[in-house]
Computed example of a mutant assay.
Amino acid sequence: MTRVLHVITGLEHGGAERQLALLLRHLPLDCEVATLTHAGPVGEEIRRGGVPVHEIGMRGNRDLAALPRLVRVIGDGGYDVVHTHLYRACVYGRVAARLAGTPLIIATEHSLGDGHIEGRRTTRAVQALYRATERLGSMTVAVSPTVAARLRAWGVRRDRITVVPNGIEPAAFAFAPARRTATRLRLGIPSDAHVVGAVGRLVPTKRFGLLVEAVARMPGARLLIVGDGPERARLHRLARERRVADRVVLAGATGDVAPALAAMDVFAAPSTQETFGLGVLEALAAGLPVVRTACPALDPLPREDAPDAVRLPAAAGPDAWSAELGRRTGRVPVPPAVHRYAIAEQAAKLARLYTGGEPRAGRARPARESIPT
């Protein structure tokens, strides 16, 4: 059986990390994981599922001592494929896989925004390092056509890019009234409150401050944000300034957002810098109406595939958001868009790439070929 090693920067709560854990449950192959940093909660979840997780112990972005350790893990494992996820893992992982002589090296680009990647600015140095190491691999998987276009703008050749969207397990988010009641009780949210919800890392590009401003214009409404990050203190401060601190709940990060989605009445996604929009799909799978700005997963689809996902322009302010969020509430049917991205189908696409069942975007160079400098 084809042996695959997934290399990822870390396994704390995050979109790429959760996506990897989900993929591993559906890939019909012999998979293991290497995390450059430590396993974290998602890593422990993966281990409980029976997948080995190797911790490389990297101490920082420039900890070059991690490279030979990763080369040893790859070489000792005799993997047929190394699949990297997230910027640092792509840089180190492609070099290590090449040194270890891995036949097929794939990278998935999860988080390439317009002017940033995983929260860091895309300086010329960042782009140059990305391009140099990208050439060491066989192909780069983009999670949406939007990301594929950004990769091409960075100088990655079109014939080296293939699109395999993120996947979702719709049944995991099915609405359950008991879960709604329990979650609201745990978070101190009244059972009859109108709850605006959001999920994501607390960073400026998510524009969660706009939601605080919008909810401040909605008497009695609550705002529930699931996620953590550097913007947490600023959001707390803004909620106090707008006198809605008692109506804003920052619930922190979690590996299971389904209970929080059950507690919401409408889902908000004001980010203008999305690479896929997995949170929107999860909300739709939970039967929530959605108000959003950028969502590459939905943008190319016909309106009838997600009729309850209303789009507001990037320039829309708090008044427009409060008006739209206030008029949308209650459960809606799960739309066809959700089932377009079923995880089993996306995992099958990756499995075919690993085993040669689909044309590859590029060809792996022979292991004996020297690495360009």
Rank of each mutant, 00 (worst) to 15 (best):
V95I: 15
V95K: 06
V95H: 09
A97W: 09
A97G: 08
A97N: 05
R98I: 09
R98D: 07
L99C: 11
A100G: 08
G101T: 12
G101C: 05
T102Q: 04
I105R: 04
I105Y: 00
I106P: 09
I106G: 05
A107S: 15
T108R: 05
S111D: 04
S111R: 10
L112N: 01
L112P: 01
G113I: 05
G113C: 03
D114R: 15
G115Y: 03
H116M: 07
I117N: 08
I117F: 02
G119A: 11
G119F: 14
R121I: 05
T123W: 10
R124M: 10
V126A: 06
V126M: 08
Q127R: 15
Q127K: 15
L129Y: 09
R131A: 01
R131N: 06
R131H: 10
A132R: 15
T133D: 05
T133F: 11
E134V: 11
R135L: 13
G137N: 03
S138W: 14
S138C: 14
M139P: 08
M139L: 15
M139I: 08
M139D: 07
A142Y: 09
V143H: 11
V143R: 14
S144T: 13
P145T: 14
P145Y: 14
V147H: 08
V147A: 07
A148M: 02
A148R: 02
A149Y: 00
A149F: 00
R150A: 14
R150S: 13
L151Y: 08
G155W: 14
G155M: 09
R157C: 08
R158L: 12
D159C: 08
R160H: 12
R160E: 05
R160C: 04
I161L: 06
I161H: 01
V163Q: 10
V163I: 13
V164S: 00
P165C: 02
G167Y: 00
G167W: 00
I168T: 03
I168M: 02
I168V: 06
E169K: 14
A171Y: 03
A172L: 12
F173M: 00
F173C: 01
F173Q: 00
A174S: 03
A174K: 03
F175D: 01
F175W: 06
A176Y: 10
A176V: 13
A176L: 04
P177T: 00
P177H: 03
P177A: 01
